[in-house]
Amino acid sequence: MKSLATQRRKPVAALVLVVLVLSLIGALYAAVGSATKVQAVDAPNSAEQIALGEKLFVQSCSSCHGIGGVGTDEAPSLVGAGEASADFQLSTGRMPLTAEQAQAQERTPVFSDEEIMAISKYVGSLGAGPSNPTASQLEYENADLALGGELFRTNCSQCHNFAGEGGALSNGKYAPNIRNASPLQIWQAMITGPENMPVFSDQTMSDSDKQAIIKFVNHLDNEPSFGGWDGGSLGPVSEGLTVFLLVIGLLIGAAVWIGAKVR
C-alpha cells in the first residue's frame, strides 16, 4: 500500500486506482463496515492514554507545534484543533509532515492505531474542539442517498469532482480523491476542514446530512461503470484523448491496410 500512496498523483494513477477500487468492490463492502466499528470505539478518556499521547506528542510533534501544542512559526497552534482533527491527520498519514510541499500528502500512517488514539486524545484535551463521532453517528446505511447526491453536488463536487476523483486547486494544491475514504475520515474531514478544505460544522451540516453524504460517497465507490471503462471519470478530456489515440488510431490502421499492396 505504501507504493500506491506515493504513486497516487502519477498520470496512470487514475486508471490504476479505478481498476483497484472497482475490482475490490466486494472486499470494500466488508472492509468499510468493520473499519467503522474498529475506529469509532469510544475508549475511556483515561489519564493514562492522555499521558502516553503527551509523551508521543513531545517526541514527534512538538518540534513544530510547540510544547503543549501552542504553535510555533512553522506550524499552527493545536489548542482547540480537537481530537477529530488530530485523528484524521495522523490516520491518513498527513502528519507528521515529512517535507514542505504545497500541502500534506496522504501516506501510510507512521503511528499505530493505539498511538494515534492516544495522541488524538491528548490534542483533544488541549482545548475544546471537534471530537470523533460515535459509532451510531457513523451508521449511514439508512440515510437518504438522493439527498446525499444533492448535498454532494452542492457542497463537495466543485473540488472533489462529480465522481469523487478529486481536482486541482490554485498553485499546486489539490482536493484529494475521496472514493476510498472511510466514513470516519469523511466525517472528520467535514467537521475539521483539513488543509484548505473549509469546515462544515454540525450546525450547517446535520448528522443526517453527513450520513447522506457518506452514503453517496460510498455509493460512488461501489457504483458500476455502466457504459464500460470510465477513463478515470475525468470527463471530456479523457474522451477526447480516446478519440484521437484509440479511435482514429484504429481507423488509420484500417486505412493503411486498405491501401497496402498485396503479394
Binding site: Q158, F162, A168, G235, V237
Partner: peptide, 9 residues
C-alpha cells in the same frame, strides 16, 4: 458544479 468541468474536445 463539478471540478474539471470541460467542454468536448
Amino acid at each position: 458544479i463539478t471540478a474539471g468541468s470541460q467542454p468536448d474536445w
